[in-house]
Design a protein around this nucleic acid. Structure first.
Lengths: 342, 342
DNA sequence: TTGTAAGCGTTATCAT
DNA sequence: ATGATAACGCTTACAA
C-alpha cells in the first residue's frame, strides 16, 4: 500500500485555500495574508509536504542545475577546484551535477547528452577534449551542438570555433615564474618532464619553458624535455629516462605535481640522493605540502579561479553580459624542494 | 528572440504521427512499425530534439537520481569511494548528485532537503552526523523523516533507531590486523594517534586497539593514545605531544593516513629520525604510496565496498529485497614505514 | 488578497 | 500499430 504523494492540492484542500495560494507561499510571493500563509505552512508541516522539483522545473523552464565535467575527481587538482565551485554554487542556490569522464571521449559525450536532457543551465568543462590540440571533428561538432543549447564554460582549455566562455590560469606565466626562480637560485640546466604532446596545456607549458630558457640565455636540451604522461608512474618513467642521460640537469620541472611525486620515487628506488636535483611541480595539490621534500610548485589561485567560474555562471543564469575570456594569475609557492647552486 | 523548445508534439507534426507514437520510440516501445520509427528518429535528429528529463520524471515518478552526501571530496578517502560509485552508477544509468557537507550539520540538512525535493531514489550518506556517538535529537528526527520518504544507505556509520541500510568496512578487524603485524615485527609499545572521542569510527578503533593490545599481552598506556583530529595538522599536533612523553612507543598507528602524514612532518621539523618509529596509517589513500617512507596502512577494499553500495542501490530502485547490513573485510597493505625491532 | 484555468513536456490508459 | 485523452505537480496569466 503506497503512500499517496502529497501535492499542493492536498494542502489547498485542508487549508481551505486554492492551490494558487499554496504555490504563492511556496514561491514566497508577498501577496498572501500573513494569517493564511501561516495556516498553509502549518498544514504543509503537518502533511509532510515537500514540493516536487521536477514539476517546478517543468513550469519554470529552469532547473538551477549546473553540469560539471572533469576527468577524475580523485585528482586533487580537480577536486580542489570542484569543491570551491560547489560551495559557492550552494550559497547561490545552484545544484551541481558532477561527472567524471576519465578522459574518455565517449563518456564525455554521454555526460553532455545527459546534461542537455536534464536541462542544466550551463556546463563547466575541464580537461579531456578541450585540451586536445587536434580534437576530432565529431568532438568539435558535438560541442558546437551543445553550445547552441546551453552555455559552455571551459576551464583551462578551449576549442577552435566553439562559442563559449573561457577561464584559464596563466600557465605560461607560471612556467616563467618557475624558471626565473630557478635561475635566481643559480640553475642553468633545467629539465621539464611529463605531459603528452598535443595536449594544449602541455604544449603551452613546453613553449613557455623553451621561451623562458632563451630569455634567460639558457640552452634548450632536447633530451631534458621528456614527455610521458600525467600520473605518478609517468613521472617515474620520465625520471628513469632522465637518469640515463649522460649530462644531467640540476633542476627538474614537472608538468604537474604528480609527475614529480613519481620522479622522487624513482630517485629513491635508484638510490639517487634527492638533493642532487631541485624539483618544481605545478598545480599545488595538497600532497605537495606533505611529500618529502615538500614541493615548490605553482598554485592556480583556486579561490579566485573558482570565484570567477561562479561569477560567470551567475551572469549566465541571470542573463547578464559577462566577459568571454578571463585569465587568472598563478602564484609560485616556495617550499623545500629547491636548493641554490653554489 | 528565443528559440522555441522542440517537443514531441513538434516531432509528431512533421513526422505525421501522434505524440504518443513519438513517445513510444523514445521509450523504446517495440509496438512501432520499423519504418515509422525510423521516420520519427530522423525528424528528431533534424529538429535537434532532446527529451526533457523533468517532464519524464514527473510522469514516471522516477528520477534515476541518487543523492550522495560526504564531508569533503578533496579527501581521497571519500573521492576514491565516490568515483567508484559514480562509475558503476553510470553503467546502470543512474545519475549521482554529490554534496559536500564539510561536516556541518546545517549543510547536511540543506542537502537532505534538496534531495527530497528532487525526489532522488535513495541517499548514500558518509561521515558527518552518522558518525556521532551522540547525534542531536534534531539530527536523528530529521534522518527519521527522510528515511520514511527515501531509502538511506549509511556507509561506515549508523544512527540508533533510524531505518536504513548499513554498509561498513570491518575497521575493528583492520586495527587488529595492524597490531598483529606490529607484534610480529617485535613491537611491544604501540601508540594510537588522532581522531576525536565521540566519533563512532574513532571509538570503534580505540576499543579495538585496546582490545588487541590486551590479547597480545601488551599494556595500554594512556599517554600513547592521543586524540586530536583527522587532518595533517592534527597529526602534527598529536606527534608533538607524543614526542614530549618521557617513555616513547616504538610504533605509531594513525586513526587515518592523513594524521600520519602530519606525524612524519613533525618528526622532520624536530629532526627526529623517521626510522625511530614504525608508522601505520588507515584508509590507504593514494598519497600513502607517495610519501616517504611509503606508508603501511589498511585498505578499505574500495572495489568491493563500492560494488556493494551499487548493489544495494540497484535493489532499492528495482524494489527487490536486500541485506540491511553488510560488512566488508579490510586488507593490510604493507609498505616501507615499519621496521622490525631487533 | 484570492481563485480559475491554462500550460509545461512527458508517459500511461484505454480505445480503435 | 496507432491515436485521443488524461494524468503528473507545479507556476503563471488573468480575473475577481
Amino acid at each position: 500500500m503506497k503512500k499517496k504523494n502529497i501535492t499542493i492540492y492536498d494542502i489547498a484542500k485542508v487549508a481551505n485555500v486554492s492551490p494558487t495560494t499554496v504555490s504563492r507561499v511556496l514561491t514566497g510571493n508577498p501577496l498572501v495574508k500573513e494569517s493564511t500563509r501561516r495556516r498553509v505552512l502549518e498544514k504543509m508541516e503537518e502533511l509532510e509536504f515537500t514540493p516536487n522539483e521536477a514539476a517546478r522545473s517543468l513550469t519554470k523552464k529552469q532547473t538551477n542545475m549546473i553540469g560539471f565535467i572533469l576527468p577524475d575527481i580523485t585528482n586533487p587538482f580537480f577536486s580542489q577546484t570542484y569543491i570551491n565551485v560547489e560551495r559557492k554554487a550552494f550559497e547561490k542556490g545552484y545544484t551541481i551535477l558532477l561527472r567524471n569522464s576519465m578522459n574518455s571521449s565517449e563518456m564525455e559525450s554521454a555526460h553532455l547528452r545527459e546534461f542537455v536532457e536534464r536541462r542544466v543551465e550551463c556546463i563547466v568543462f575541464m580537461g579531456g577534449r578541450i585540451n586536445k590540440s587536434k580534437p576530432t571533428e565529431k568532438e568539435t561538432a558535438e560541442m558546437n551542438e551543445v553550445s547552441k543549447r546551453v552555455p559552455l564554460i571551459m576551464v583551462n582549455g578551449m576549442m577552435q570555433g566553439v562559442d563559449c566562455y573561457t577561464i584559464r590560469t596563466d600557465e605560461e606565466e607560471g612556467v616563467r615564474s618557475i624558471i626565473d626562480h630557478l635561475v635566481t637560485l643559480g640553475h642553468k640546466e633545467i629539465s621539464l618532464i611529463g605531459g603528452i604532446k598535443g595536449v594544449t596545456t602541455v604544449d603551452l607549458k613546453v613553449l613557455a619553458y623553451q621561451d623562458a630558457l632563451k630569455k634567460n640565455g639558457l640552452q634548450f636540451h632536447k633530451e631534458w624535455q621528456i614527455y610521458s604522461g600525467f600520473g605518478v608512474e609517468d613521472g617515474r618513467a620520465a625520471m628513469e629516462k632522465l637518469l640515463k642521460v649522460s649530462k644531467k640537469p640540476t633542476a627538474i620541472i614537472g608538468i604537474n605535481d604528480m609527475v614529480i611525486y613519481g620522479a622522487l620515487k624513482e630517485c629513491r628506488e635508484q638510490n639517487v640522493p634527492i638533493n642532487e636535483f631541485s624539483f618544481v611541480g605545478f598545480d599545488d595539490i595538497f600532497p605537495s605540502d606533505i611529500v618529502y621534500p615538500s614541493l615548490t610548485t605553482v598554485n592556480h589561485n583556486y579561490e579566485i579561479l573558482t570565484s570567477e567560474i561562479i561569477e560567470v555562471i551567475k551572469k549566465i543564469i541571470e542573463k547578464k553580459d559577462s566577459e568571454k575570456e578571463l585569465l587568472i594569475d598563478t602564484k609560485l609557492i616556495i617550499r623545500e624542494s629547491c636548493q641554490s647552486i653554489k
